[in-house]
Design a protein around this nucleic acid. Structure first.
Length: 642
DNA sequence: GTAGGGTTAG
């Protein structure tokens, strides 16, 4: 009843996908934002020209020969110098072989050759290998410099071992290698990655205070990312202003970081304002990432018209959509249940030379699963192999979630075991889905077993797992267990979450523990937690269950004053409560308020109203008003002008 | 000649 996803939406989605620029023409384009950055044509030409050689063109030997060759034009095989080392070597074995070749050379190749190789391995995300190579360089006494140090620190940081990164910094000091703004930026980024933002702030301040390095736009961007990540968008914006004042010009990445964070926090209007500031006041060109963040934010709020507008804007600015942006659109449509439209997007992306990847199909599978169409979801899953795509853990999680939602316990169990058989590791999400599914199937013992299994695999349950367990216990007449778990967690961060309270308030109320429900609701203010629409709605439903309709209505008025206006669900819940408590006089007023607010009545409320009319508790004249409040069938299919 | 930052999955 309180599931917001059941709210009906009446959308007409019009996406005008930007046409892919056909030619890169250097003519003047009137739009102030216009710029030419389409490299896709050059790219595809490059790929097709190489494809005829097959994949064996770069053997370790040839790479070694090309890479180490002297500058003599006679001995040199034609090498495309515009391609960097990391583009030439994309295979770990080749890189390791080359490293061996290099160490056997006398004299040893220059430091920067080693550094280039280290960078190539790092680009492959083989961080532990990079670190190992660095250690071998040390034992071979290959000199290292600030570049090498930064790469190795980055590798430590990417493995979430920033402390080891600091040890490398110590090594640098010991060897008289002066760390610079790049070195420190990498370390700051490592701290941010590990959510150690306070430590990052302290280091950042120390760097400035002791003049260890002059922060540049990249370093500021990292700090801004840290602030955003720790929920301090305002401070992040303040730092953006500060860097500007200090004469350090923010760039598109700096803005993208904050815009993305604001969009994730549903503050899309603030993000759009920042976007305008960036473009019109600072003259910074947005890129595909900027648009992806904004479009993602708008999609989450179902603001489709504005999505279309931004897509149109991209077309005007000749910014091509990339796979990630297509995936954002595909995912948003699938979440709305519009899988067919998402498939249209896939067709058009293929036409434009962008290829769907695992993420794309994961969204499609998820879309079918949400609609309960498991056979279609499985069809897509089966087709992935023929498209050269390997399903990942997300693919399995989506399918698993589909089975669990449909209470297909055996299929879910089978798939769950299949994951390990395929050599993949279930993650916290896999286990959480499984636990939720078992609770829903009223298999509390099995749910507990899966939880133990998860702990045995050293996986730490997250806040979502915690909520799933609390909700599972509540829905299986084990509210006492849920409450004792909640008390056991005490002041844990997981307990300062409004969603946790909503689950418990609802659970306590439904199992007749009204006083506990009310106390929990009152506790919110003491804990400094702001009740949201769900909290109020759950409490209103709780009052109605106790026959306290007056208090329920009072709370509805209070919502408005607290800056948290009631929504569709709140009204439906109150309406049902009023009917159950035979307070028929209030019905008309509530229906009129709903009409004024543009809300609609859900199917179960309509059914109840009709029942009370039939039994003459309500007047037939209400039918006209009810008719206006019944959601119309969605006639308008989303329209894609491609 | 070689290093550091931003977008997608419950």
């Amino acid at each position: 009843m309180l599931n917001p996803s059941s709210r009906s939406s009446h959308l007409k989605i019009v996406f005008v996908l930007p046409a892919k620029p056909k030619h890169v023409v250097s003519s003047v384009v009137s739009h102030p934002l216009n710029k030419f950055k389409d490299t896709s044509i050059a790219h595809s030409t490059l790929i097709s020209s190489f494809s005829q050689f097959g994949t064996g063109i770069f053997t370790p030997k040839t790479i070694s020969a090309r890479f180490l060759s002297t500058s003599s034009p006679h001995r040199q095989t034609p090498v495309n110098h515009s391609r960097s080392m990391s583009e030439k070597i994309t295979n770990l074995d080749d890189a390791l072989q080359l490293f061996d070749d290099m160490t056997n050379r006398k004299p040893l190749p220059a430091v920067f050759k080693f550094t280039q190789l280290l960078q190539a391995v790092t680009k492959m995300k083989q961080y532990s290998y990079s670190v190992k190579l660095f250690q071998r360089m040390n034992s071979l006494r290959v000199p290292v410099n600030a570049y090498t140090i930064s790469i190795v620190i980055k590798c430590c940081c990417q493995m979430h071992r920033t402390n080891e990164g600091f040890a490398v910094l110590g090594y640098a000091f010991k060897h008289n290698i002066l760390p610079n703004v790049c070195t420190f930026s990498t370390l700051l980024n490592g701290l941010v990655l590990e959510d150690r933002v306070l430590k990052a702030e302290r280091l950042f301040k120390k760097l400035i205070k002791e003049a260890l390095c002059e922060p540049n736009a990249i370093m500021y961007s990292i700090m801004i990312k840290g602030l955003c990540k720790s929920g301090n968008n305002d401070t992040a914006i303040a730092l953006l202003k500060l860097m500007d004042e200090k004469g350090c010009k923010p760039n598109v990445v700096t803005y993208n970081t904050i815009i993305n964070s604001l969009c994730k926090d549903k503050m899309v209007d603030d993000a759009l304002n920042l976007f305008k500031e960036m473009v019109f006041h600072k003259g910074i060109f947005p890129d595909v990432v900027t648009y992806t963040s904004l479009i993602h934010g708008l999609c989450n709020l179902s603001r489709w018209d504005e999505v279309s507008k931004l897509l149109k804007q991209m077309e005007d600015e000749r910014i091509s959509l990339d796979v990630k942006l297509y995936n954002t659109l595909v995912d948003a449509l699938c979440k709305e249940g519009k899988v067919e439209d998402a498939n249209c997007i896939i067709s058009s992306m293929i036409e434009r030379g962008e290829y769907p990847n695992v993420v794309t199909y994961n969204s499609i599978i998820d879309g079918y699963c949400l609609r309960g169409e498991m056979s279609k979801a499985n069809e897509v899953f089966d087709s992935m192999g023929s498209r050269g795509l390997v399903p990942n853990i997300v693919t399995y999680n989506n399918l698993l979630n589909g089975y669990c939602k449909k209470l297909k316990r055996e299929e879910a169990m089978h798939l769950f075991h299949e994951i390990t058989k395929k050599g993949m590791k279930p993650n916290v999400i896999t286990y959480s889905i499984m636990i939720q599914g078992l609770f829903r199937a009223r298999r509390c013992k099995d749910a507990h077993g899966v939880y133990n299994d998860m702990r045995a695999h050293n996986l730490i349950p997250d806040e979502c797992t915690y909520r799933i367990i609390l909700e599972g216990l509540c829905n299986n007449n084990q509210v006492d267990e849920a409450l004792s778990l909640f008390h056991l967690m005490g002041g844990n961060k997981l307990n300062s979450n409004i969603k946790v309270y909503n689950i418990l308030i609802d659970g306590a109320s439904k199992s007749g523990k009204f006083d506990i429900a009310r106390n929990l609701f009152n506790d919110l203010t003491f804990k400094g937690l702001q009740p949201n629409v769900w909290s109020y709605t759950v409490m209103i439903s709780s009052f109605c269950r106790e026959g306290l309709v007056g208090e329920a209505k009072e709370l509805l008025f209070k919502m408005e004053d607290s800056g948290c206006p009631p929504d569709n669900v709140t009204y439906n819940v109150l309406l049902q409560g009023v009917l159950k408590n035979k307070q028929y006089d209030t019905v008309e007023m509530l229906l009129k308020e709903m009409e004024a607010r543009g809300f609609s009545i859900d199917a179960s409320t309509v059914e109840m109203l009709l029942h009370y009319i039939k039994t003459s508790c309500l007047d037939v004249s209400l039918l006209k008003l009810i008719g206006k409040l019944v959601p119309k069938e969605e006639v308008d299919a989303p329209c894609f002008i491609v």
